Amino acid sequence: MSQSLRRCRNCAKPCSGLLVSYQLSLALSGRPSHMDRSSPDFIKPMLAESGEAFDSDKHLFEIKWDGIRAMAYVEQGVYRLMSRRGVDVTERYPEFEPLRSLPSGCVLDGEIVVLDADGKPSFRSVLSRAQARTKLRFRHLSQATAADFIAFDLLYLDYNELIRKPLRDRRESMLERIAPKLGEHMAVSDGVIGPGRSFFDESLARDLEGIVAKRLNSRYFPGKRSDAWIKVRKSSSALCAILGFVDKGDDFESLIIATEDDGELHCVGRVGTGFDAALREPLNDLLRDGRCDAPLVPCDEKGTWVMPGLYCVVRYLECTRDGIFREPVFEKLITD
């Protein structure tokens, strides 16, 4: 092997034999060649558990960006953007073209957001970007309502896996190797260590969604929900009338609910989470015993309607412009 290397160094023309010999030696030694290395096709993003605000010098507290989760994969000057569910969304965001200049073999976890005139993430705007379907529309929206990619974790660098390393080390690598190379419409998420409660209060004062607390010594858990990450979000609660339910045979799938606004009852959508096993059976009986032909108030939802008299308390993130509760969670049942 060494003789082959010496001959090639002294040769005036490129020697393909050198490349073959080099790759063969790597294969025999068990070391991967650069050409054999590649980024993972897809990594399921790590998920956070819900909790309350707290202080800790063992946690990093970051803003919870109100957008769409995405992973950026960069390899040999080519980049891919993958959604949380593994859908390739690269073409939808041409403004992220500078990602191709990042180090080859890196994988970033982050959030795609669209900022409003006040610099706050607008979920409605980012949703309109995600729902675009044509290349012409992608290009138009990238100029009319440009998105930003906020990176908050680094899972691979130079084709080396960082998933098992602690968050503290992953962030250090991201700040040193990735942050200086990010272009327009891209940034690394900032945060604080220690005062989580005041950081959360400040996020509410700025009308942001909330914060995420991340344990500094924790590894990354692909596709798993872990208490190493805790999301703390603003929320509101409302007393709701149960208009009906979506039936799935011997159980209900969700409740169709309405709440009062300016003295009138309006349908605010459906709630399908927050029910414990002990409640489902008696609630099913109440729903089925109270069935009727029409809802108490006009409603665009499709379902089985019930007579007035059933109420519940629902926690939700916000009420959309269309008057629908976003991310509703059932809290308790109230009956007349």
Rank of each mutant, 00 (worst) to 15 (best):
G67C: 09
V212W: 11
V126P: 02
E111H: 10
F252W: 05
F123Y: 07
F54P: 14
N10I: 11
L127Y: 06
D300V: 00
D289E: 11
S16E: 08
E172I: 04
K58E: 14
G249L: 15
G67T: 12
D336N: 15
S56I: 14
R233L: 14
Y93G: 04
L279H: 02
V246N: 05
L19S: 04
R9P: 07
D118N: 10
Q3R: 03
I257Y: 00
I193M: 08
A130M: 15
Y311I: 08
S218K: 07
K165Y: 01
F252M: 09
D261S: 09
M186A: 08
A132M: 04
I242E: 02
R7Q: 12
F330T: 01
E281S: 11
T145S: 11
A132V: 07
F275A: 05
Q143N: 14
V313N: 12
L127H: 09
L154R: 03
A117M: 15
L47Y: 13
I150C: 03
P14V: 08
L243M: 00
A146D: 11
V297Y: 06
L265H: 04
R84A: 12
C299R: 03
C15R: 07
L81P: 01
L127R: 09
E331D: 13
W65A: 09
I257A: 02
E264D: 02
E49H: 00
D66R: 01
H59F: 13
G290N: 15
G30N: 07
S237L: 10
D116N: 08
C106F: 15
G86L: 10
F200N: 07
H140A: 12
D227T: 03
L286Q: 04
G51S: 10
E49P: 00
S4F: 06
P282M: 02
F138C: 11
P222Q: 13
N284K: 06
K120D: 08
F123D: 00
V114P: 04
T335I: 11
R288E: 07
V232D: 02
L47K: 13
R9L: 15
A147P: 01
E202S: 03
T273K: 13
F61M: 12
E260R: 05
E176H: 07
P32A: 11
K302Y: 00
V212N: 09
D153Y: 13
E264A: 03
S237R: 11
K165A: 02
A27Y: 05
D300T: 01
F245Q: 04
G210I: 08
A48S: 06
R133W: 06
L239I: 07
G210S: 10
E327R: 06
I163W: 06
G105K: 04
D289Q: 09
L24G: 00
C299P: 05
A12D: 13
R84F: 15
D247K: 09
L286H: 06
K58N: 14
I256W: 02
L279T: 05
F325Y: 04
P180E: 13
D116L: 04
E264Y: 01
D293N: 00
R84Q: 14
S236W: 05
A130S: 15
